[in-house]
Design a protein around this nucleic acid. Structure first.
Lengths: 161, 161
DNA sequence: GCAAAACTGTTATGAAATAACATAACTAAA
DNA sequence: TTTAGTTATGTTATTTCATAACAGTTTTGC
């Protein structure tokens, strides 16, 4: 994926400057309201996700972690990712082994992505799972989290192919 | 998952005897009709998936591969899994790094699972993605495959919890 | 037959994630 | 404001998951 593709990932360009600062501030505020601790490593990993143009691999985050070029130790980043996922600030994209910042409101533990197999872009969207899980829950299942990953070609890559 | 759970995985008990032979024969027939080759390693991995009581990890398959206890080499199993997925005989469950035989008709490249976080059972079900992807496709996306993974508690584990 | 394609066997390595344990920082109750 | 409990971090090492690369074999179509 992405190897034979000249497109830039465009679904969610990375944040910088004021936009980045605003996004981080919003996370800080939300944590303060809920008495959660957005500690330095957690905040740093969130920044890296927000700055990125597309899904980030854990070891990309590890390599980019230090402002001075020093990598993080793996557990530092994996723990921060656990926290960010738990609070709904980030999602893991299972089929890519990669992570993105959440683009949707709230902490719904429901995430859905359209993933381009050419350029690697991942577009988050708001799914409607209600009909599926009415059935599941009436059969006795207690659904806690749901992830949906649709793979294919984004509009730009589809044109070229 | 499964560690603190006394339940047996019950969603799809492993096949044996005639049922197993029938399932394998159905795969053989389907391959003959489509001129695909269900070679010995592919068939062996399919058998192992069908015999299992729940999702199998790749290295579980590797360890169980030889009838004499000899493990397979990793590429042998991963190649067989690629084939089985491509033909719709098996699905990878991304959030478990594990594999199950397909329980549904056809080769739709659409799979949906209810995964119990207590006992590890994975129940395949037939989703209705139509409304989601009408929107995606009208926005220019060409969707190729879809996977949905819902995590929570199955009826048996929910009762105990 | 012969060449191309598909498949297998094998060695080695790369990528992703966590176990385990020591230390430090918050929090709240006595 | 000590102290106990909890939560988070730092660090080393290891485990788990997956693929690259290449040689050799079988199948398929011309």
């Amino acid at each position: 994926m992405g190897v034979d593709c000249h497109h830039t990932e465009s679904a969610h360009p990375g944040l910088e400057g004021v936009a980045l600062a605003d996004a981080v501030a919003a996370a800080v505020n939300k944590c303060e309201r809920t008495r959660e601790r957005l500690t330095p490593p957690r905040r740093r990993v969130l920044e890296l996700l927000l700055e990125a143009d597309g899904p980030m691999k854990a070891y990309d985050l590890i390599a980019a972690y230090g402002h001075d070029g020093e990598p993080a130790k793996p557990p530092t980043v994996y723990r921060a990712l656990d926290f960010l996922e738990r609070l709904g600030f980030a999602h893991r994209i299972e089929s890519l082994n990669a992570y993105v910042p959440c683009r949707m409101e709230g902490t719904s533990h429901r995430a859905a992505f359209l993933i381009c197999e050419c350029c690697g872009a991942a577009q988050e969207f708001e799914p409607d799972f209600a009909p599926q899980f009415a059935a599941a829950e009436s059969a006795g299942y207690a659904v806690r989290t749901v992830t949906l990953e649709a793979r294919g070609l984004c509009p730009a890559c589809k044109v070229e192919a």
